[in-house]
Simulated assay, not measured.
Amino acid sequence: MVSDQTRLLFVGINPGLRAVAVQAHFGGGSNRFYPALFRAGIVDRRIDASAGFRREDLNHLLDRGVGITSIVAGASARADELTPEQLLAGAKALSARVELIAPAIVAVLGISAYRTAFARPRAAWGRQPDSLGGAPVWVLPNPSGLNRHASLADLADAYREVAVAAGIEPLADPA
């Protein structure tokens, strides 16, 4: 889900089974991606993609300059089911995709997957020293309901910071 106006490309690890079933990135019921976008002021409403995207929500994301993709295209119940080979191959394909999309910033959601996919075992959170397809890369917390290391507030803060860096003006604080 991207447009020629994509400023910030969020990159998940791979789609979950539910996301594929409803044809919507982060479409699983326990995923905190859309609540974090709302709380960060990136979008002006709570998007519920658990039954698929509503046209107006999809258009709002695109109008705000937000694109969404994943490292690995294939679905799994859990990201930790992916092999290192799948992540490495996905990273190569992602690099080519990013060159075509040309976002201002790429935000990879999940540090363990990033470390494996991009052969950066010591990578830390935040902006990375390397670019991807010509775009700066940030590594941010994964919003999966299985990843409780970061709170919703932590996710929102991180997502707001990268959105501002990508030139997306935050909307009024919904809190």
Rank of each mutant, 00 (worst) to 15 (best):
V2E: 14
V2A: 15
V2D: 12
D4L: 12
D4E: 14
Q5N: 15
T6E: 06
T6Y: 05
R7Q: 10
L8M: 11
L9K: 11
F10C: 09
F10G: 06
V11R: 07
G12I: 01
G12T: 08
N14I: 03
P15V: 01
R18W: 00
V22Q: 02
A24M: 04
G27Q: 04
G28H: 00
G28V: 01
N31T: 09
P35C: 09
P35D: 02
A36G: 06
F38Y: 15
R39D: 07
A40V: 09
A40G: 14
G41N: 03
R45P: 05
A49G: 07
R55S: 13
E56A: 14
D57F: 05
L58C: 07
N59F: 08
L62I: 05
V66H: 06
I68S: 00
S70W: 12
S70H: 13
V72S: 02
V72R: 03
A73V: 03
A75T: 06
A79I: 00
A79P: 00
D80I: 00
E81G: 08
G90M: 02
A91I: 00
K92M: 04
K92W: 00
K92N: 04
S95G: 09
A96F: 00
V98T: 05
E99R: 15
E99W: 04
L100A: 15
A102Y: 01
A102V: 03
V108I: 14
L109T: 04
G110P: 02
G110D: 08
I111L: 15
A113D: 04
A113L: 05
Y114H: 13
R115N: 07
T116I: 15
F118E: 02
W125K: 03
Q128R: 06
P129T: 14
D130K: 12
S131F: 04
G134Y: 14
W138C: 09
L140Y: 08
P141V: 08
P143T: 09
P143N: 12
G145A: 13
L146C: 05
L146R: 15
L146Y: 14
D154Y: 14
R160E: 01
E161Y: 12
V162H: 10
V162M: 11
A163K: 12
A165S: 12
G167V: 05
E169R: 15
E169W: 05
A172M: 06
A175H: 09
A175D: 10
